[in-house]
């Protein structure tokens, strides 16, 4: 189960992975963006307690983040 501590581990892991991948090749753009979107979700859902919030707030943040990430990914294709 995700808790604050495992959340932190994942955050650090994703950060390092993102920096490493983007150093390897710019072809990993989509992957890097997805890693950061995941981090966004860990912070908002776990640290900010969004997972206990009304669906309205959860859907809104999902739409906003996924929308942004897909714009960035698809515009780079």
């Amino acid at each position: 189960m995700l808790n604050n501590k495992t959340g932190w581990l994942l955050l650090i892991l994703f950060t390092l992975a993102g920096s490493w991948l983007s150093g390897l090749s710019h072809a990993f753009l989509a992957l890097v963006m997805i890693l950061f979107a995941l981090k966004f979700f860990i912070i908002s859902y776990q640290y900010m307690g969004l997972r206990f919030a009304h669906p309205f707030w959860r859907y809104s943040i999902n739409i906003v983040v996924l929308g942004f990430v897909s714009v960035i990914i698809f515009s780079s294709l």
């Binding site: 993102g18 983007s22 710019h26 890097v32 966004f40 912070i43 908002s44 640290y47």
Partner: peptide, 23 residues
Amino acid sequence: GAAFWHMCDLIWMLLFPMLYLIN
């Protein structure tokens, strides 16, 4: 207050890859 602080994290999660990493 905590939510405000986390918001700084959230914003950084957008800025960092866009400015420093991806191209």
